[in-house]
Amino acid sequence: MFEAKLDRGIVLKKILDAINQLVNEASWECTSSGMSLQAMDTSHVSLVAVNLNGDGFSKFRCDRNMVLGMNLVNLSKILKCAGNDDKVTIKAADGDDKIKLIFEAPNEYEVSQYEIKLMNLDAEYLGIPETSYNVTVKMPAAKFQRICRDLNQIGDAVTISCTKSGVDFSATGDLGNGSVSLSQNSSFDKPEDNVTISMQEPLSQTFALKYLNQFTKATPLCSQVTLSLSPDVPLVVEYKIIEENEEDSKNEIGHIRYYLAPKIDD
């Protein structure tokens, strides 16, 4: 038996919005410590990994490990039927070919139930090695989204260059070129606007903006995004999954990590 309840169902909606255009089908692995999902996009250029801690749920029970393969587009459709303030429970019985989604409205007298068919998906699980990255940039998620969107007007790839003075995002195309430079800054009053750069060695790498723009669909989950880079390894774009409660308290309940293979010079 598997049962997981989130008090703020909107978090699940945001997670699905962040991944369902990149991957249409995926398996959730459920264990006593939480739920996780890993999947590559169809062209095998990027990989998304979602992790939700069991203790981030208001109720979490997983008697034995389960793999819940499903169509994420369909899951997203059903989650659209939940109100933003609804409590959402996911339930799966051992050996069943479907999961149940229960939405409880805040008024406490309205309960909706939906079922989704499960699928047997080929497992394509990749082992991601522990890597210590040369460069880590932590910046406002909305700023990163804006830069990727703006530079995509210029070209279809962005070169991220890090030096001691800061980080440059640049693109070149038929119409010309453009770049955005950020230097480290910190504000005591608005930590969500901080740019933090940690660098061992300067580097420059190029990535397809098509994928980065897909990753920025996770922007509503968290005010800051972390980019981790090293030469000749995939870029990591990480968003923490933050649940905001009624009392405005913020609770980190997991993360989404996107990995993107670099472009290399011919």
Partner: peptide
């Protein structure tokens, strides 16, 4: 610019 690499050339299938 540059050739696109694939993610599964960096991470091994388990």
């Amino acid at each position: 610019k540059g050739a696109q690499t694939r993610i599964d050339t960096f991470f091994k299938m388990m």
